[in-house]
Design a protein around this nucleic acid. Sequence first.
DNA 1: CACGCGTGGTC
DNA 2: TGACCAAGCGT
Length: 374
Amino acid sequence: MRKSGGPELAALRPQSRPEPAALLGWYDAHRRTLPWRAASGAQADPYRVWLSEIMLQQTTVTAVQPYYARFLARFPDVNSLASAPAEAVMQAWAGLGYYSRARNLHACARTVVAEHGGRFPATLEGLLALPGVGPYTAAAVGAIAFDLPAAAVDGNVERVISRIYRVEEPLPGAKPRIRALTQALVPARRPGDFAQAMMDLGAMICTPRRPACGVCPWMGPCAARAAGDAESFPRKAPKKAVPSRFGAAFVCVRADGAVLLRTRPPEGLLGGMDEPPGGAWRESDAMPATVELLQEAPFDAPWRLAPGGVRHVFTHFRLELAVFVAIVAPDFAAPAGIRWVRRADLAGSALPNVMRKAVAHGLAFAGGAEPGAA
DNA sequence: CACGCGTGGTC
DNA sequence: TGACCAAGCGT
């Protein structure tokens, strides 16, 4: 150890300059092999880089992998994505979450085709102007696909940099400072590898808990490592408690197994995604009485409460859904704005996971309760 | 600029 | 099991 961790160890004062070469050397030896990454030294495809970066926003590599493979097989280039119907894009995204990303992805592909001749702009300003592309994604695509010396600052980089410099200011206020500190490290050569190396370092070594400082290529310059408090960075503003909301889902099943679904409005929570009809969600401490929930039924049918219900956690609230089931005759007409979806077509619908759970819960009850009833 | 916006894994 | 986390963006 070279220094004590006393208060004289000020923030923004690393042990020494973190050398990009040391990080790149580590990256060449230990980089992860990921399906959207070009082989070492090979040129990356902007479409694939962009697609992966959008999918990876606030989403783990593990969750993205199968979606990326399916999505790329179905939409192999920006032209095929741009010409696809919105429903096909939403269906391919269903289950991945943050559905505005899918809407913006589609809009972005159409913009690239309509306004840029099918090629992604090769400047930060051009990229930043695209729907769904913010400062991070513009820098990542710019650096990885176009060799621009841009600082791609994501959660990994915020963690790495805040530890090296022991940035005391909590996020998100510290973002501008961290961005500047990162930009000062971006090398003129291999800026794309530098961006990916920073992310690999954050994912493999400089992890949120129990960072592997002993094998870190930047352990020398890291001020938090010297102070022994790396795990306490980055500082973060306290979060608000998440409230609970309660509501009802109405799963109407036809004798042949078809289910009534509707599509949510394009904006807002689960925008543009499918769902069984449901009532308003109320913020409360407990589930409202059954008779009260039943008043929100979208149409008249022999509704029965399926025991158990569905729990789901969103970013900013917890949801508990009571599930009502009705089994109706083969000639039951779909009300306006609602459509019959055959059982075999459910998998191909744009049901977000919470609604997939609600439908499954209702079908399980219907199947066990009154098979074939009309 | 604070908030809205999904989901699954981890401890 | 609740709290936190994971390659942010739009408003």
